[in-house]
Simulated scan of single mutants.
Amino acid sequence: MSAPSLTPSKAGAPRPPTPRAQRPPAPGGSFARSLKRHATAHGFLIGAVLCFTVFSWYPMIREFLLAFQKTEGGRTTWVGLDNLVTVFHDPAFWQAWRNTLLFTVLALVLGFAVPFVVAVVINEFRHGQAYLRLLVYLPVMLPPVAAVLLFKYLYDPGYGLLNELFRFLHLPEQQWLQDPDLSMLSVVIASTWMNMGGATLIYLAALQGIPGELYEAAELDGAGLFRKIWHVTVPQTRLVLSLMLLMQVIATMQVFVEPFLLTGGAGPEGSTTTVVYLIYQYAFNFNNYGAAAALGLLLLVLLAGFSAVYVKLSRAEDA
């Protein structure tokens, strides 16, 4: 008689259940289920596209068309390049471009370098960084009008704090906003103080992402503070610096609020007339919307060309 087997026989083993026949999905069913599952995401996406269409893309297309049109008595006619010819023959055109480029250069010297230096200094503190970040960002939270009124008080030739300080130091008083040679620099200083908070926080975030081992290796090699900044900090934050450079050039070329509120727009002898302020004059003082749109189109083409060159150089450098 044979011994009983410990392995169950195949005849007595339970069979796996037979899978039921699955029906083919109905046409369009997967898309409907996906749409229902992501309804909230699609809603936000559609809202964003509509906002861009209404507030960004449509004004750009309308400006492009308006640059070649002229509206008189409610009638709109095509005039081709006449608006561009009108803008080019305006004596204020070239002065506005010179002032805008001067503002951009001065803003890069101050507004690009100062936030980076401030971020490096804050990064060296081991305690109280949160309070310092708040202190640096406070000017950004001020309404522009309030910040400009503060600087108008500082620049006042009679009782302004700057001239009070100059009198205390036995230095000659200055006509900060009334002197054509100082008005643009005064506007740049005010603009730098008003807008440096955001750039400082971006630089500070980039600095805190640098590995500490790099600084330790530099110290072992005998590098001082400036050598560590030049050989470690700047290379490690190169991408952020280049991106902020592009954004600052685009922002400073469109400056309007600071000169308009500080010097009335044109300034003494037209020293603070910028391209955007000239666009404002064409549109709201001269009622020449075609010339305003043509000048805006020129500024758009210039900034787009600068951005394209920047992107091309960045790709060539990264390759």
Rank of each mutant, 00 (worst) to 15 (best):
N287D: 08
T18P: 03
L132I: 01
Q254R: 11
L66Q: 11
A39F: 13
G296P: 09
G212E: 03
V148D: 06
V187K: 01
Y215R: 14
A292F: 01
G128V: 08
R20W: 04
T18H: 10
L169K: 06
F260R: 03
E258F: 06
Q22C: 05
T86Y: 04
W94L: 14
Q208C: 04
V114D: 08
L207Y: 02
Q175W: 11
V275L: 02
P115I: 04
R20F: 04
A316V: 09
T40E: 12
V105T: 12
T233A: 06
A113H: 09
V187W: 02
R126A: 03
S34K: 01
D90C: 02
M194W: 09
V109Y: 13
T77H: 12
T233M: 06
Q95Y: 03
A39H: 15
V114I: 14
P8F: 11
L177A: 08
E164D: 06
S271V: 00
L262G: 00
V257Q: 01
G74H: 07
E317I: 10
V276W: 00
E216N: 10
G209R: 09
V118H: 09
L161Q: 05
T100Y: 11
R98Y: 13
A205E: 10
R15Y: 03
W78Q: 12
E258P: 02
Y58P: 03
N195W: 13
F125E: 02
L45W: 12
E72A: 15
S183V: 10
P143G: 06
I250L: 11
H38I: 05
G128P: 07
A251W: 07
I46K: 12
P144M: 08
G265K: 00
N163H: 11
M247P: 00
L182R: 13
N83P: 00
N285S: 10
T18R: 11
P180H: 11
G296S: 15
P211H: 05
F286M: 10
L295F: 02
L300Y: 11
L225K: 08
F44D: 06
A199K: 04
L135H: 01
L298M: 08
R98H: 14
R315Q: 13
L239Q: 14
V301G: 05
V54C: 14
S5Y: 12
T273A: 05
Q129R: 15
P157C: 07
R167C: 13
W230V: 05
V309K: 09
D90S: 09
A319V: 11
H89T: 09
Q95W: 03
V301C: 15
F88H: 10
L171M: 11
T252P: 02
L245H: 08
F168M: 15
V309Q: 13
G29V: 00
M141T: 10
A107R: 03
N288I: 00
G128T: 12
L302D: 06
V311C: 06
L108T: 07
P180G: 08
T100P: 07
E164L: 06
E72T: 10
